[in-house]
């Protein structure tokens, strides 16, 4: 596991203030601990997914980074300065889930309005092109689809040429095509080296677009690392092979094995240490067609954030399940 502190050290080594630094953040909303001791540092240039189910504290965390709410305790800084200061300088911008647009302005007027609030901005034409809304420039916001409104929000977020863009559930309610176009625009932009933090509960988005995935559950960070690391943190790999007369008791006794399923000659072993299983199968048995795969991020996500965390971890340890 890549702990928050370790990353924080790395960022300091780079002699740059971290793009985002949260230390021991606590936030209580009407007796619900929305954020329960979050420490997180994001390096400049990272693309980070904040992944978790609804109510995990993602939006509360984003609000604190944006200076929209104050933590009960803990410190927050963005590029080494207070969020409000960073906002005033156009260093951060955000694409919110919904709302945040005036229905009686056109797309182009909304971009113009936003551009007038900053000291210096990218040209309106350029950001509209990058967000793919040039052809709907003269349409009233009220007449835009959800996806078009979201691309408009993205154009507004690009105006100040921010160092950090935060997206809160950016593709919620979009169809597949809209989602694809939106991420294409974000991805093109991220290649310019901007720091991006996005909240999502779509695992696939986190997996496909983030360098680093931060998993939240009940106001706490429960895992933090690359998508690959998170998957392996689920500590579950699946080993499949063909084998006659498997010795279930021996297999089950191998370190980290959680489940053994046989079906005719086919055997499926779920475990945390696939190397041990593979070595055993290939050296001590006549196993053929050996295959190792890791459990998808989806399952790791459920294991790490689900309510039934305990039961899914302890599933039938050392027990052979026969058909």
């Amino acid at each position: 596991m890549v702990g928050g502190e370790e990353i924080h050290k790395t960022a300091e080594d780079a002699h740059l203030p971290p793009a985002v630094r949260l230390q021991e953040i606590y936030k209580n909303f009407r007796h619900v601990q929305a954020i329960d001791g979050v420490t997180l540092a994001i390096k400049p240039g990272e693309v980070v997914a904040l992944l978790g189910p609804n109510g995990a504290g993602k939006t509360s965390t984003i609000d604190i980074i944006l200076g929209l709410s104050k933590p009960d305790s803990g410190t927050v800084s963005v590029f080494g300065i207070a969020p409000v200061q960073a906002i005033r300088r156009g260093l951060i911008s955000a694409v919110m889930q919904n709302g945040g647009l005036l229905k009686d302005l056109t797309v182009a007027e909304t971009v113009e309005y936003t551009s007038k609030l900053f000291v210096t901005t990218r040209p309106a034409r350029e950001v509209m092109e990058r967000a793919g809304i040039t052809d709907i420039a003269n349409r009233l916001v009220a007449k835009c689809s959800g996806g078009e409104q979201q691309r408009l929000r993205f154009a507004m977020a690009l105006l100040s040429d921010p160092e950090l863009i935060i997206l809160d559930e950016p593709t919620q309610g979009m169809d597949v095509e809209g989602r694809h176009q939106f991420w294409q625009a974000i991805r093109d932009d991220a290649s310019l080296g901007r720091t991006i933090l996005f909240a999502t509960h779509y695992l696939q988005e986190a997996d496909s677009y983030a360098d680093r995935v931060v998993l939240m559950r009940k106001g706490k960070i429960v895992a933090d690392g690359t998508a690959v690391e998170i998957k392996s943190m689920g500590k579950r790999k699946v080993v499949r092979a063909h084998l006659s007369n498997p010795e279930i008791s021996v297999l089950s006794a191998i370190d980290g094995v959680t489940e053994v399923v046989t079906q005719g000659e086919a055997i499926t072993i779920t475990c945390s240490e696939s190397d041990l299983i593979a070595r055993y199968l290939l050296t001590q048995t006549n196993a053929k067609n050996l295959e190792i795969s890791s459990v998808g991020l989806e399952e790791a996500f459920l294991a790490l954030t689900g309510e039934s965390q305990q039961s899914s971890w302890a599933s039938s340890n050392n027990r052979g399940i026969l058909p």
């Binding site: 944006l66 929209l68 906002i87 300088r89 951060i92 955000a94 919904n98 647009l101 000291v119 507004m156």
Partner: peptide, 14 residues
């Protein structure tokens, strides 16, 4: 403007 979330949007501008 509050109901539309516009005032919130403005708060993440200067």
């Amino acid at each position: 403007e509050r109901a539309l979330g516009w005032s919130r949007q403005l708060r993440i501008t200067p």
